[in-house]
């Protein structure tokens, strides 16, 4: 290990470092609101709470009484046209929660009256970039809240693309003047599937726009990887996370675990592991062994 200067926060945005959080998922609702286990913050899946009432609203209101909450969406479909009802409900949720930021993905989930509910990558072209930028600007203007754009994991690329994903991602967030939610696991999964160096990706994104990091587990499917969020984070992803944190400084970090959801204590353990990796990166120690993949 070679000691270097500890990284300091480089964000251009006035948003707090929330620490290490986890996703608020149905199997844990009652335990969290009744027992208030230790956790820095929670991310809530926005669409689950964009309903008129009932159990989801009850558990969101109880959660907010004791924890910091940031909404994360999956249905903005920035690569296609806006759904007015979705935008209205999302805006109402954001006005209610008043989060420091909210997030969704750099992707398309469907077109009008045809939804596939998956995060489809986009062709990396100037025309698509301009479309996404316009959508983000409209959303930020409407909500008055900082938007963080998340990279997706992907299994296909387009012959029309004229730039790599990281260049497209950087151009979008710069032109839209929004923040980044950088999913390190997604970078790793896509790097295997498309054959690029994940560190090139992490080094190319504007570090001062990263306000949040996602970490998750994925599945090996022979030579390629499927993003499943159903298991622990693997060592190469932890190494990439430390690499990123040395660029960004302390950034709010979240463990995503959405399938085969374990006990809350297991999630707490994974979050604690993330804290240790983050602290290690922030300590200024540079490791020759931090090579992912």
């Amino acid at each position: 290990m070679t000691p270097t200067h500890p990284p300091t926060k480089v964000s251009r945005f006035s948003v707090p470092d929330l620490g290490i959080g986890v996703g608020y998922r149905v199997p844990h609702y009652a335990q969290v609101v009744e027992h208030r286990p230790a956790m820095d913050w929670f991310e809530v899946l926005a669409e689950n709470f964009m309903v008129n009432g009932g159990s989801p609203r009850f558990y969101l209101e109880r959660l907010r009484e004791h924890y910091r909450v940031v909404p994360h969406g999956v249905s903005l479909s920035l690569g296609s046209d806006a759904d007015p009802e979705h935008l209205q409900r999302l805006s109402a949720l954001i006005q209610e929660l008043r989060p420091p930021w909210f997030s969704d993905h750099l992707c398309m989930t469907g077109v009008s009256r045809r939804q596939i509910h998956d995060l489809l990558p986009l062709p990396y072209t100037p025309a698509v970039r301009d479309h996404v930028v316009a959508r983000i600007r409209e959303i930020q203007d409407r909500t008055g809240t900082l938007f963080a754009l998340e990279n997706v994991s992907s299994y296909l690329g387009y012959t029309d693309s004229v730039m790599p994903e990281w260049a497209f991602y950087a151009e979008v967030v710069e032109a839209a003047d929004c923040a980044m939610l950088l999913d390190v696991n997604n970078v790793y999964v896509s790097s295997i599937n498309h054959g690029f160096d994940p560190k090139v990706y992490l080094d190319a994104v504007p570090a001062d726009r990263v306000v949040q990091v996602h970490l998750a587990g994925h599945m090996e499917r022979g030579a390629w990887r499927l993003d499943t969020h159903d298991r622990p984070v693997i060592d190469p992803v932890w190494a990439l996370y430390r690499h990123l944190i040395r660029r960004t400084g302390p950034v709010s970090t979240l463990i995503e675990w959405d399938d085969n959801i374990p006990s809350f204590s297991r999630l707490q353990a994974e979050a604690e592991l993330a804290r240790q990796h983050r602290d290690r990166a922030l300590s200024g120690a540079e490791e020759a062994t931090d090579v992912a993949g």
Partner: peptide, 17 residues
């Protein structure tokens, strides 16, 4: 439309989705 990748053909990539 699809570029394929180091491990999968365009048809295999679409099949995943």
């Amino acid at each position: 439309w699809f570029s394929g990748g180091p491990h999968l053909s365009p048809t295999e990539q679409i099949a995943i989705y």
